[in-house]
């Protein structure tokens, strides 16, 4: 599912077109699962913007570095991978299960043009930080008035 990022004021770039059809399907799917509350996407994440870059922070407890993959395509960024189940000895029973184990994948729209050569990512203590430096075209430029 693609997350649409709202930017205010609403000068939308041509890269930001997610069809409303897709949004309706998302809402439908959420409602169909019962309670009416939209099912939370996994992994949960924040997108923070700074002057020269954006940073995506995602919570991925229990996921190892080698089990997560980040890919960028067509103005979107996808975080995917797998959280391996903790090994349990034989004859053990699960009494309660609240966490999310197994495969996951989430796609986010890139908030601006990104300098792909300078993207960095690190995973520590279950938190993934992806730094997306703004491409030269995305940096604010002063226009001189004659």
């Amino acid at each position: 599912m693609v997350v649409r990022i709202q930017r205010y004021p609403a000068i939308t770039s041509p890269f930001e077109s997610i069809s409303t059809f897709e949004q309706e399907i998302d809402q439908l799917f959420g409602g169909f699962l019962g309670t009416g509350a939209v099912r939370r996407q996994y992994p949960a994440l924040d997108v923070a913007e700074y002057e020269g870059e954006s940073v995506i922070v995602a919570e991925l407890p229990g996921v190892r570095r080698e089990d997560v993959k980040i890919s960028v395509q067509d103005g979107t960024l996808t975080i995917s991978g797998v959280r391996k189940e903790t090994a349990t000895p034989e004859k053990s029973t699960w009494l309660r299960n609240e966490s999310h184990a197994g495969e996951f994948s989430r796609t986010v729209q890139l908030p601006h043009e990104v300098d792909l050569n300078a993207v960095g990512a690190e995973l520590a203590n279950g938190v993934l930080r992806i730094v997306l430096p703004k491409a030269a075209t995305a940096l604010p430029r002063e226009i001189r008035v004659k």
Partner: peptide, 11 residues
């Protein structure tokens, strides 16, 4: 960081 503008906030 302090001067972050959160475009999207779930955490």
């Amino acid at each position: 960081r302090e001067n972050a503008f959160l475009l999207f906030n779930e955490l």
